[in-house]
Amino acid sequence: MIERLKTLDRRWIFLLVFLSVSLPILFEAQFPETPTALARSTFDAIESLPSGSKILLSYDYDPASEGELGPMATAFAYHCAAKGHKLYFMALWPVGSQMIDDTIANVIRADFPQMEYGRDYVNLGFKSGNEGVIKVVVTDFRQLYTTDAFGTDIDDIPMCQGVTSVQDMDLVINVSAGYPGTKEWVQYAVTAYPDQIKLVGGCTGVQAPLLYPYIPDQLPGLLGAIKGAAEYEKLVVDHYHLEDNPKYHEGLRRMGPQLVAHLLMILLIIAGNVVYFAEKRGGGQ
């Protein structure tokens, strides 16, 4: 057995990973989620605002991290729309615009057809400049955003009238896959204007530990990867009675493969160490 493990072809490991991910998807395995304090505070940050509040949603991710961030982006948009907030979408990543398009098509147009473009939601699109964009829009929106993503003059968009900077927003929601993302929003927006700008976010698993130092003062709510998304989804689903809408169970559904894959990872680490100690005992390395 040990000998076989020692010379195990890595393609067997690849096959196990494939099965651990695909089987829970095929059998639609779902497990219960209990929202943590961070997911609750993210939910409360949106829920506690009065209807009609201005929410800036910066979608700073791309298709590579859609698996982790797509469900929370969908849930954020649903929650804000269901609460009756005004949604201002923007992106610091070039393909963030397409992520916004997907959300608008799947959530707003599909489930909130009564919402009107320019009155209830607007797509401001992508701007290059990374944190430079944040630095400008926190004091003067119009210096960079003279039009929306489709070339319409920002002054002709009713919901943009009276909005001079990010400080006019009641909440900023950032979905982040890296640089620029939540860290830059904390450093250049919240830190500069702590009383005016409130930020909650969702990020990939590798980013979450780096953002914990900003909790709770600079970042009152954070959803870490698909687990955070599933917890937040659970709160949204329960509160808005979306039990029958599979679109808002994506995070919960993706936790199935994550559970099995994590268990496999633990088993692989244990198996690797069994081989290591057997080699050591046998006079190996």
């Binding site: 195990l8 890595r10 490991i13 196990l16 990872m265 692989l268 198996a271 690797g272 160490n273």
Partner: peptide
């Protein structure tokens, strides 16, 4: 997964 088995 492969690295977890071989290096951890």
């Amino acid at each position: 997964a492969s690295a977890a088995f071989r290096a951890f």
